[in-house]
Amino acid sequence: MTHEAAPHDTHGHADHGAHPHVNYFGIFIALCICTGLSILFDLFDVKSGAMKTVVVALVLSVACAKAMFVLTYFMHLKFEGNWKFIILLPTTILAIGLMFALAPDIGLHYYEPDVPQVKQTLPAASIDNQDDHAHGH
């Protein structure tokens, strides 16, 4: 049966390059522009909180755009059947869902965290220059 199944198999992917030609170089250029954009955003000296959110959203959407370029053209998803959604949608939902599920506990605190890092921001007490290392050589 191995041998009998084989012809179907090869048939299944015999369409290498059968999909329409893609201007891969164009995609590459688009990806480079996106990368340049994200670096450009870094140079912004954003002051206001609202602006900050906007720029963060922009950077993330540029990353998503890049990911879509790679998935759609480099990984040929544009030319694949609907199975791509069956494999990728649950994964994507779970991946994003996991972060949202972690957020209430790890990302936010419903209590005042009692950790050294937070205490550090308080002014240090009882450390002054009592002994200004008065030792000569």
């Binding site: 599920a101 972690l102 506990d105 790890i106 050294p116």
Partner: peptide, 18 residues
Amino acid sequence: DPTVGGGQTLLWQHLFWF
């Protein structure tokens, strides 16, 4: 010595039970 770090033990529980 006191541990040095900033992690959260609950994170493991979440990832583990996920």
